[in-house]
């Protein structure tokens, strides 16, 4: 799994498209409201774009942060498993860094930042490769 992060509108998607020009299936949060589920019929490079948006939609103030984190991690793990099941599969995750603003007034937004940060840490730990994109320029954080 390859995890790609960086600020909003920094060209993360564009960079990934350059790295993986063909044989890709894109699942973007602009089209999918919630985490898409893996499809065993897919045998290619799968790109999941907009993790921060899917995390936001999983938010539920009545649940504990641990449960929310696990819930998102489970969705990601289903894809990690999909990737493991066959050699010709590859998973690329794109998540926007939302961690460097002022502490939000709304509890839900604070929760979103927490869950997103924790999930990214876990994903980065799992990943074979991690890249940080800054206005189109990549910096490999892990390989």
């Amino acid at each position: 799994m390859h995890f790609v992060t960086g600020g909003a509108f920094n060209g993360k998607g564009k960079w990934v498209r350059q790295q993986y020009p063909e044989d890709t299936a894109w699942f973007s949060a602009t089209e999918y409201d919630t985490w898409p589920a893996p499809d065993e019929a897919l045998n290619s490079i799968v790109i999941l774009e907009g993790l921060e948006a899917w995390i936001q939609r999983e938010l539920d103030r009545s649940l504990s942060t641990n449960i929310l984190l696990d819930r998102n991690m489970n969705k990601a793990e289903a894809w990690l498993e999909w990737e493991q099941n066959k050699d010709n599969r590859k998973l690329v995750l794109i998540g926007t860094d939302i961690s460097k603003g002022i502490v939000p007034v709304e509890k839900e937004s604070r929760l979103q930042r927490d869950i997103t940060g924790w999930l990214y840490q876990r994903l980065a730990a799992h990943a074979e490769r991690v890249d940080l994109i800054w206005y189109g320029i990549s910096e490999t954080l892990k390989k």
Binding site: G7, A8, E52, D97
Partner: peptide, 17 residues
């Protein structure tokens, strides 16, 4: 550097970013 904040709901700020 103002693009690593929580996503804004309002169109104006989002457009600006």
């Amino acid at each position: 550097e103002v693009l690593q904040d929580i996503p804004y709901e309002d169109k104006l700020t989002l457009n600006y970013q």
